[in-house]
Amino acid sequence: MNQLKIQISGLSKRFGTTDVLRTIDLVVRTGRVIAIVGPNGAGKTTLIKSILGLTRPDTGRILFEGADVIGADAYRARIGYMPQIARFPENLTGAELIRMLKDLRGGAAELDTELLQSFELGTALEKPLRVLSGGTRQKVNAAMAFLFSPDLLVLDEPTAGLDPLASSILKDKILADRGSGKTAVVTSHIMNELEELADDVAFLLDGRVAFVGTLDELKRITAQATLERAVATMMTRGWVRAAA
């Protein structure tokens, strides 16, 4: 088994006159949860979208299990993506949306309906998505990311809009999947929640990786007890290239 799920090297992306990513180097190790943290506009979502091929980098390479993702499509069958905003076609039902994903993926993967059940989405899936509350849509969004038992989960602000119960269920699911050898890339503004989940932390600042290493290393270097304090310390110090 490949020990490195994703290898990113020299990744740069510029939108107009803004350098969103400046030569990012980052490795995501298999079977671990990596948290991407950083202030707004640090490039977290752009980084995630580059892994998925939604955004095309200007320079640099992204390898998924050793194979270049630029121009490739098939590797996305092994990724479950939960986008930040759960806005779907208003006149489709959740069940139809799920059928569409099954169709598009070709139905080879074994289905994992655990979240659909624990979120109790049964009747909600039969209604048009427009009538569902934001929280329920976010549950559908989460359940779809896990549905195809992907090797890699890419979760952009996964618990935003979820109630505490749903949020706990989702976090338990992420940890359970990690336990069975899956890998996850998670962004969030809520540091406490990442603290429960993350093995590794990548701290982005102005499109650069200011720190990457284990959660414990980050706390040790910043001499703080929690991830929130540690990240705050990094942000006030500005760009610190930690010897990770």
Partner: peptide, 16 residues
């Protein structure tokens, strides 16, 4: 324009 997120969801699947 309203389908923007829907298109992103489709493109995150193994499609051309």
């Amino acid at each position: 324009y309203n389908a923007r997120e829907f298109i992103e969801l489709i493109l995150a699947q193994p499609v051309r």
